[in-house]
Structure formats: structure tokens, C-alpha cells
Amino acid sequence: SSRTRFTDYQLRVLQDFFDANAYPKDDEFEQLSNLLNLPTRVIVVWFQNARQKARK
């Protein structure tokens, strides 16, 4: 499967949200999905990866 290429804007929004809340609710994932024009699944995985990185 091909990797999603995030724009700088998408990454900034995701990172800002993550800094405020590492565990979004379903409706928040949906809002981010609509805002960033990305599939919810891609955003869910991004947050999983970000939490892994933050733990190191």
C-alpha cells in the first residue's frame, strides 16, 4: 500500500491537535477527516504512530 503524503498544513493541524489531545474521539476524527480531506483511517493511524513516537 502506498504511503499517504501529508501536506505541511495537514501535518501542522494534526500535530497541533495531538499536542492538545492525543486521544481524539470518533467525531473528532471525523472532523479532522473533513477538514483535512483525508480518510478517517489514515488519521487514526497517524495518531497511533504519533503516540508511539511520543512514548519513546
Rank of each mutant, 00 (worst) to 15 (best):
R3F: 15
R3D: 15
R3A: 15
R3I: 14
T4L: 09
T4N: 15
T4S: 13
T4V: 02
R5M: 15
R5Y: 15
R5W: 15
R5P: 13
F6H: 02
F6P: 01
T7V: 03
D8R: 08
Y9D: 12
Y9T: 09
Y9E: 12
Y9L: 07
Q10A: 02
Q10R: 02
L11E: 13
L11A: 07
R12Y: 03
R12H: 13
V13I: 05
V13N: 06
L14I: 09
L14T: 01
Q15H: 11
D16E: 09
D16L: 04
F17D: 01
F17T: 10
F17G: 04
F18Q: 06
D19W: 05
A22C: 08
A22R: 08
A22H: 09
A22Y: 07
Y23P: 02
P24T: 01
K25C: 07
K25H: 06
K25Y: 02
K25A: 10
D26M: 13
D26L: 05
D26E: 07
D27W: 08
D27T: 10
E28H: 04
E28I: 05
E28M: 05
F29P: 00
F29W: 06
F29G: 01
Q31E: 10
Q31T: 13
Q31H: 08
L32Q: 01
L32V: 08
S33N: 02
S33D: 01
S33V: 04
S33L: 00
N34W: 03
N34K: 14
N34D: 07
L35G: 11
L36R: 02
L36Y: 01
L36W: 01
L36G: 00
N37T: 07
N37A: 10
N37V: 09
L38I: 13
L38G: 01
L38N: 01
L38P: 00
L38V: 07
P39G: 05
P39K: 07
P39L: 01
P39Q: 11
P39Y: 00
T40S: 13
T40Y: 13
R41A: 13
R41W: 08
V42D: 13
V42L: 13
V42W: 08
I43L: 08
I43C: 05
I43E: 00
I43K: 02
I43W: 01
I43G: 02
V45A: 12
V45P: 07
V45K: 11
V45S: 12
W46F: 06
W46N: 00
F47G: 02
F47E: 01
F47H: 03
N49A: 07
N49E: 14
N49I: 06
N49G: 13
A50V: 05
A50L: 08
A50K: 10
A50H: 06
R51T: 05
R51F: 03
Q52G: 10
Q52N: 08
Q52D: 15
K53A: 13
K53F: 12
R55H: 14
K56P: 12
K56V: 08
